[in-house]
Design a protein around this nucleic acid. Sequence first.
DNA 1: CCGAGACATCGAAAGCTGTCAATATCCTTC
DNA 2: GAAGGATATTGACAGCTTTCGATGTCTCGG
Lengths: 119, 119
Amino acid sequence: MDKQLSYCCPPVLHGALGKRDAEELAATLKALADPVRLQLLSFIAAQPDGEACVCHVTGPVGLSQPTVSHHLKLLHQAGLLQREKRGAWVYYRVIAERLEAVRSALATRAPRAKSARRA
Amino acid sequence: MDKQLSYCCPPVLHGALGKRDAEELAATLKALADPVRLQLLSFIAAQPDGEACVCHVTGPVGLSQPTVSHHLKLLHQAGLLQREKRGAWVYYRVIAERLEAVRSALATRAPRAKSARRA
DNA sequence: CCGAGACATCGAAAGCTGTCAATATCCTTC
DNA sequence: GAAGGATATTGACAGCTTTCGATGTCTCGG
């Protein structure tokens, strides 16, 4: 399940995707494709320190602690959240490179002969 | 369900996402989060003309015609595929702007400077 | 060592999803 | 207009997801 952090799959629109690649990208997208998990991601990323512990996010999403824990686990397994235990608390942090990898995989073929605006 | 083509939601990582926005982005991501649908998208986009009819894609994905039709419908409803009927055939084409909108929504604290094309 | 708090796991219920065969609908051709 | 082919819809079924309450595990403070 854990491949390279900054790699996900070949871009979707640069040629027919193989079954294996499609499954892998779909797995990551599936982790993202839930409103609660999107809220969790954005909430964590919006914190001043870019991190949050479970007790901190349970309130905002309005779900039970086991349910939030479950969603965080899925995001962690998808490589989108970093998990760090500090004492009795567990802090989660968004792994930006992973999200960037997903974005790259969804990149549209260069629309025109424009300048690539990559840095 | 059908909002503007080139808009999807506020970016995930630019602040805590509202419930409504999260649900909307999740709905689009859910359409993408399936290996068969990713293959369909990439296959269609990889065609010389950038389009394909149903009979053309049924073989490559190896599923029954109704199943493929079902997936294409979901992608169409999510605004990711354009549907055009020509005679007895139906041609699908990837809506690149929509995919770009999803990418923007997943942007990591990216440089804004994009024009909001909303009225 | 004990109690309390934070988080994870388990087990179960309700709902959603992907798939197919059968069937309906629409278009072309004869 | 009848036949045949291309898509869409329907109905059904298996499997997965989301959610919760109950419970387990770990850590800190005393």
